[in-house]
Design a binder for these strands. Sequence first.
DNA 1: CCAAGGCCGGTTTTT
DNA 2: CCGGCCTTGG
Length: 773
Amino acid sequence: MDIDNNNNKSNNLAERAIVSRRQLSFIADLNLKQREAVETINGPLLVLAGAGTGKTRALTARIAYLIDCGYAKPNQILAVTFTNKAAQEMRQRIEKYLGSTVEGMPWIGTFHSIGAKILRRHAELIKLKSNFTILDTDDQLRLLKQLISLEKIDEKRWPARNFLGLLDHWKNNAWTPDRLPQDEINKFDGKGQKIYKLYQERLSILNSVDFGDLILFPILLMQLNSDLLDQYHKIFKYILVDEYQDTNVSQYLLLRLFAEGHRNICCVGDDDQSIYGWRGAEVKNILSFEKDFSGSKVVRLEQNYRSTPHILGAASSLIKANSSRLGKELWTNISEGEKVRLINHWDGSEEARWIGEEIESLSFGTRGMKPFSYNQISLLVRASFQMRAFEERFIQLGLPYKVIGGPRFYERKEIRDALAYFRASISFDDGLAFERILNTPKRGFGDKSMQLLNELAREKNMGLMSAAKFAIDNDKLPTKLSLELDKLISNFKRWNSDFLDNSKKHTEVAEMILDESGYTQMWQSEKTPDAAGRLENLKELIKALDEFENMQGFLEHISLIMEMETEKDIPKISIMTLHAAKGLEFPVVFLPGWEDGLFPSQRSMDQKGKLGLEEERRLAHVGITRAQQYCVISFASNRRIFNQWQNTMPSRFINELSEENIEILNSKSDFGSYSNGWSNISEIDQTYNHKSYNSPGWRRMSSNVHKKLPIKEIVDPFVSSTPNNFIIGSRVFHQKFGYGIIKEINVDKIRVAFEKSEPKDIMASFLVHEDDV
DNA sequence: CCAAGGCCGGTTTTT
DNA sequence: CCGGCCTTGG
């Protein structure tokens, strides 16, 4: 709103003085490196920011600096994050720095929200209306199931869920149906490309896009309309990207298109915190930044403000085992603190018991530490099924806890149903929403009538609601169903005009819809224990809706932001996955379940071999670096997984931790070898003793670790083509050209000087290290 | 069309 | 052990 603020400032000396004081306030307390990251404004810049080095601070100070010094207007800065939380935090900090609102910064947001914004502006160029809906996974699956059965593919062998995985992969790589690589086309029973095409056509008719399209379509828009791209080049004078290590190929391409304009792109990231490879993130992007953006500068933030030296030491010793790194060494001014503690338990429930007891002690103050509040304590697990044991234990002990990133509000059935009613009322084209609630509450529509309508819709190339109308008019349905359907459709027409009627409040219309459709009634008459809770949730939904001006805005909001802010309550212990913990910090961190196969996860290693293991190791690194003062790693000798007891070996990561930063707490059970599992908790708590690395238990454990399961070497052409497998100067072999020396690496094109042939640019996937021949 | 029971499978998850 | 999905029988 208040954009002019910045333009007027130079006219007024007093204000100028204020401005420079303000500048001091957000630059003065930065360290030299951070300052360099803020003040290097021209050309491509990569900021390698280790955990806890003030990354967000530097990033936001940079934006404030650009605006305050007049390098850019607030609306000329594109700042992209991955999560809404990060975007929100960025906004708040900038506001704090600039002392004004950031209303005038339309281009701060997640990749997807910015993609959606661009797409809405130019929807017609890509055969969409600008009020298109954004599908969720449920909708996508429903649509895919239809298409798969239509193609007469056996759904058992080729589940829609698998196709969704493929689709994701394709869109992450910016492959449209026509641009699919040869070896992708015939995936999924030979019909991959065909279904992809059908899917996109159907989406277009439904006036819908999926999440992948929110990145993919803007890329296409920019590639196909050079004048449009020019426009955006003019708008985006400065580009900033947070968590660059998490970008996938599509996101990278989009950024590169925009960056071609002013070439002022600043990416912040940490290759050691890249933990989303499994969903398409390419570490390659950050590793080859300097190659991708010529003339770039790299600034490393290595001073850590978060953790004690022992915690940092343990984390660095671990991450050193990774081979593909840009290399950073975190250091700190913080003086001595607790060593990282390591403890073994007989089994998972003993582990849960011990941690529960330990948390109680910590909350009263123990071992010379000040008492910790529960909200200073967190428990980070590899997989969410591990949480249950702790929740059960904490409930028994009466310890308050919260699960972060648990089942999300907008993913609940009743919420989705309600939203489907709203969506179908707003847009008659939204066939997937209509289909969802057609028989909810029961209106007598089963598979058969549903199929009839769907086939009709596809045949006539119309939305499901129009097809329904057609079916009624042409007597395609039993009279009873026709009457029901007719009633429903006229309801939707009325609800639609109610939403458009400005004299009616949208929340009231929404409530009315839920009542008139019989949806509320449906839950009221249901006797299951959770029915009451569902009705509560519906009320919550209406409350959330009240924050918005109209239904359209609300729907846009929730399709992009899948969470509801939870009110702050009494202090609680935070339980979450390691993935969810990225970006957070806690004084106390518990890291249970460090057992080979669980963490590192066997599946990760099976699927991606060494690269998978390295990603797991980064995850471990993320875990340890969350801790500010006190970090406890634990593992159990026996664990029940899917109700089956398994003997477990300590995680290989434990052996990689530097001895001098670790203190071993050993329970009587001596690494589980002779404990009968009945040990009494308090006894364990009181009798753990501090053992050196030479205890018999430790030696046994170590020797077990050496028997680590072999890692399968998987040759995935896409993955193994990362240039980091090769370095300049190494000797490689090529099937046709023989041996040669690497001279230059450019993403996956590698220039090789062959011994018996001219130098050539070769795709990385065709080269092997000389040792591997 | 629907409710009840059998069977299979089961990381990480944001937008 | 749990939840989702499919089959089966009313």
